[in-house]
Amino acid sequence: MKFIITALVLLLAYPSPSAKAEGQTLTFTDGMTSPPATLEEAAWLAGLWRGEAFGGQVEENWSPPLGDSMAGAFKLVSDGKVDFYELEVIREVGNTLILQLKHFHGDLRGWEEKDETVDFPLVKVTETALYFDGFTIERVSSDAMNMYVRIKDGDVERDVLFAYRRVK
């Protein structure tokens, strides 16, 4: 519930994303199974990325594949202060991938309950993108990527663009 409230606040506080963001995510529907995939298909994501979203600066730092996962850390900074963090993992489960994350306020109080995660099963893989349920990671070039996240506001859903550049 805290995630929904915070998402609503962010949606109301910041202008709509560009039209390019609309329709960039896919949905995992009943009866679907995730396609075969390995962490090697996400390995390009490893590294430090920065960009802008929600009227602030965003940063993601992803580890290379190790064991059965990749770990990532996200933060949104507005007016010089952290709005929120996310801890993220892309895990290899069976013969496919799942993206899981947990949100934290700027003071590290969690949004989700202790044993809960927000899970995004894999819907589709292409040479340039990983499509999770409502969450797309698109490789634009070796130094640029876009993430599109579907956010719900009541009955309205829209895709929000996070445009990143690799930090070298």
Rank of each mutant, 00 (worst) to 15 (best):
P35G: 08
A37Q: 11
T38C: 01
T38A: 04
E40M: 03
E40G: 05
E40L: 01
E41M: 13
A42W: 00
A42P: 02
A42L: 04
A42C: 08
L45S: 03
L45F: 00
G47Q: 12
E52G: 14
F54M: 04
F54R: 10
G55E: 02
G56Q: 07
G56N: 03
Q57C: 14
V58R: 13
E60G: 14
E60H: 10
N61L: 15
W62I: 04
W62T: 09
W62Q: 12
S63N: 06
P64R: 11
P64V: 09
P65K: 14
G67Q: 05
G67A: 02
D68C: 05
D68S: 11
S69L: 12
S69Q: 13
A71H: 15
G72F: 11
G72R: 10
G72P: 12
A73G: 09
F74C: 11
K75H: 13
L76A: 00
L76K: 09
V77G: 12
S78G: 11
D79P: 13
V82G: 05
D83F: 14
F84N: 11
E86W: 10
L87S: 10
L87I: 04
E88K: 13
V89F: 02
V89E: 07
V89D: 01
I90H: 01
I90E: 01
R91N: 14
R91E: 04
E92Q: 09
E92W: 01
V93I: 09
V93W: 10
N95G: 15
N95T: 12
T96A: 03
T96N: 08
T96V: 02
L97G: 04
I98Y: 08
I98A: 00
I98L: 05
D107L: 06
D107K: 06
D107Q: 00
L108E: 07
G110L: 03
G110V: 07
E113G: 10
K114Y: 02
D115I: 12
E116H: 11
T117D: 12
V118I: 08
V118K: 08
D119A: 01
L122N: 08
K124V: 01
K124T: 12
V125M: 13
E127P: 06
T128W: 05
T128M: 08
T128G: 02
A129M: 00
A129R: 04
A129W: 00
A129N: 05
A129D: 03
L130N: 03
L130S: 06
L130G: 04
Y131M: 14
T136L: 07
T136R: 15
I137C: 03
I137M: 09
I137R: 03
E138K: 14
E138F: 13
V140C: 05
V140I: 00
S141C: 01
S141R: 10
S142T: 13
S142M: 08
D143M: 09
A144N: 02
A144D: 06
M145Y: 07
N146K: 07
M147S: 01
Y148T: 14
I151R: 00
K152A: 15
